[in-house]
Write a protein that binds this DNA or RNA. Structure first.
Lengths: 286, 286
DNA sequence: AGTTCAACAGAAAATTTATTCTATTTTAAG
DNA sequence: CTTAAAATAGAATAAATTTTCTGTTGAACT
């Protein structure tokens, strides 16, 4: 008999100017983020789910995905068609490929970590990851809970928290400052803009506290600030890299953190983690 | 005659002494190799195929697998039943789980990090260490070596590297700037001191490159800087936290990093690690 | 060689899954 | 506020998958 209703009116894709449809997971992600704004509410919902749970999205059936993403199965087909695909299965295939492609790299990755000769960026990344993880583990083992508690107590009593750190330690100061102001506490980041560092120090009041961080070739200005402040009887919490650091003696509580290093470039991962613990400890009121 | 309370006509598994059926891929592999000899010819064929192509086995339909393994679909069901399963789908589920387990830890571990018990500073530190380690592991698995290499290449060709990041992302900018200037390259950190951000953007030359980082509630100024620069045909390397970030579309190369979070305070450990890898990759001349 | 029985291929049935369709709701425009 | 258009939910349909079933084959044993 006659041909059944074949493909009559294929609903036009989102954009006429979309000649080639995504062929890989990466391209799909890019396509999704590029046209996210133009999607309707329900389609946005699906887009978000697919990006947040790419694994489930790859292996679940349409019905399951619909349930998990709180949409109707038909919405998933519309989602696929909005990007120019025939049906949902085509989209899902991209997500499945991603799962397969992630596999083989694992063994070769490990090999590249051990072989310390390679300097490809991803080999470096592997080594930094390794190093940072080791440093974090070390931090957890070495840290003394009572020191931590004492530091949090001192910071908690402070009226204003002043922060000084320079050069490599400066990101710590910036992060500390961001966190502490975000949670609504008064803080002062000494940035020495316009050479006003000296003047800013005078602003440390008797009920305040000072957080300092300094590494290796210890910046004189930072050490002196700690020294002066401590002499005035104001609590100084210090973060440094070695017991023989000048900050050890010029502080009320001093933490020694050994960060990872590759090619003489030293990380900040463990130090950042400690800073975070201090501030969040402060936030949760201990 | 002791008629056993029969479970209908359930075909007895290969071995009576097989009380518990495999619950993971690993167990399944073990079960297969243990009883391989006792399998029939066709079932051996399937066993071999499943072990040689576990990936295809996980995502193909029964029909496709049957075709690829040169057996009848029904043979696959018999295979599953020979190991005590109800049907083929149960076996396939084990193989699918294996694909997901390639990235197992991250979500589950972060979840355990989030739900809190103690809030003493050292308990927090423990959780942050856990979270950061999981995030680092996740970073390693998700990062694409070619993206990394491309970013390093673009940065390497740049005359001057410009850096923009604010609020929570600012420490990354500071660290990037410190590392890159330490190794003797020209860099410009856009700090908006005195509200001069807009003027600084004009200083980006045609042979330069831009590094931007921005998270969650994306700072408009940063996004606009990326957009403008990209439009001028200048390479933009971006670091952000989600595929739907506005930076995804407004950059030449974009990295998505999921950092750990405890009590809504998000870490920077993984991001810092990526920054470090980029810069050191640059330094070691790849 | 003849008998028995497990293994098998292939077809048929049952189930699940993907897609289409339509009435309804929501959203945007006048 | 009314109307038109787009988007959506849910049922209906079509397609595909998985599973069961049946007759046949081939090997092991007598």
């Amino acid at each position: 008999m006659a041909k059944p209703i074949s493909q009559a009116a294929k609903p036009a894709p989102l954009e006429d100017a979309e000649p080639s449809l995504p062929a890989t997971y990466e391209e799909m992600v890019h396509a999704i983020s590029a046209s996210y704004d133009r999607l309707s509410k329900r389609l946005k919902q699906i887009a978000g789910y697919s990006l947040d749970h790419p694994n489930d999205f790859a292996i679940d059936t349409i019905a399951e995905t619909a349930r998990k993403a709180k949409v109707q199965p038909s919405a998933l087909i519309r989602f696929a068609q909005a990007f120019g695909f025939d049906g949902f299965s085509d989209v899902q295939r991209l997500f499945q490929q991603r799962l397969l492609e992630a596999r083989p790299s694992y063994e070769s990755r490990l090999a590249s970590v051990r072989d310390c000769g390679e300097n490809t960026p991803s080999a470096l990344l592997d080594r930094f990851v390794e190093g940072n993880m080791a440093a974090l583990e070390h931090l957890r083992q070495e840290i003394q809970p009572n020191k931590l508690a004492e530091a949090v107590r001192l910071l908690g009593q402070a009226d204003v928290i002043h922060i000084i750190a320079m050069r490599r330690a400066f990101p710590l100061a910036a992060y500390f400052f961001y966190l502490v102001t975000t949670m609504g506490r008064r803080a002062q980041l000494m940035d020495s803009v316009g050479g006003l560092g000296r003047e800013q120090q005078v602003l440390i009041g008797p009920n305040d506290a000072l957080f300092v961080a300094s590494f290796s070739s210890y910046t004189t200005e930072v050490v002196q600030a700690a020294e002066k402040t401590l002499r005035r009887g104001i609590p100084v919490i210090a973060l440094t890299d070695h017991p023989l650091s000048p900050l050890t003696t010029n502080s009320t509580v001093c933490f020694h953190v050994e960060d990872a290093a590759v090619h003489d470039f030293r990380s900040l991962g463990a130090s950042m983690c400690l800073v975070q613990s201090l501030v969040v400890g402060l936030a949760t009121g201990n």
